[in-house]
Amino acid sequence: MLMTGLGMNRAQRQNQERAMHLLEGRGIPYETIDGADPENRETRNKLFSISGRRGTYPQFFLLGEESVEFVGDFDTIEAMNDASALPCEILERHPEIMTWEKILK
């Protein structure tokens, strides 16, 4: 999770906290990278390049063996969390709906 420890507005801070609670509640391991920390500048810029979104926090990525994949922002994570509670028959009829199960395989 790319987040920031500085210059947050209230909504951004709440989204970061809520996202961590969602991930922890699902038992999904994650690590945070503080984009405001000068030591993380190179990593932050690489992640911004992958997502195509500069200065937007939080952002979520999947780290693969040899790749990094942009998952989305807080709205994406919240939508996946909500969709994961949908009945299986709805998810089967709508394969375009992203869920934790689909993204984490």
Rank of each mutant, 00 (worst) to 15 (best):
L47N: 10
F61V: 02
L63W: 00
F70L: 04
S67H: 01
F60Y: 07
E66C: 02
T56K: 05
N45C: 10
E65I: 00
V68P: 06
G52H: 08
V68F: 04
R44A: 13
R44F: 02
F61K: 00
F60I: 05
F70V: 04
E42P: 03
L63E: 09
N40A: 13
F48R: 01
E69D: 10
N40V: 15
I50E: 12
R54I: 07
G64F: 01
V68G: 07
L63S: 08
V68N: 05
G64Q: 00
N45M: 14
R53M: 07
F70I: 06
R54E: 00
S67Y: 09
V71L: 07
R41A: 15
I50G: 09
R44K: 15
F61Y: 15
T43F: 04
S51P: 08
K46D: 14
I50F: 06
Q59W: 06
Q59F: 13
F60P: 01
T56A: 14
S49Y: 05
N40M: 15
V68S: 12
I50M: 03
F60D: 07
E65Q: 10
E69L: 09
L63Y: 06
F48N: 13
E69H: 11
F48E: 07
F70W: 13
F48C: 05
G52K: 08
Q59I: 11
F60R: 09
F60L: 11
E42Q: 15
G64V: 12
R41C: 11
R54V: 12
E42M: 10
L47S: 06
Y57T: 03
S49T: 10
S67F: 10
R41Y: 02
F61Q: 06
G64N: 07
F61I: 11
E69N: 08
P58A: 06
P58K: 11
S49A: 15
R53P: 01
S67R: 11
F48Q: 03
E66D: 12
G52V: 02
I50A: 07
Q59V: 03
Y57Q: 01
Y57G: 10
F60T: 01
P58W: 09
F60S: 02
G55M: 08
L62D: 00
I50P: 03
L62K: 02
E66H: 07
G55D: 03
G52I: 00
F60E: 04
E42G: 04
P58M: 08
R54K: 13
V68L: 10
S51T: 00
K46P: 04
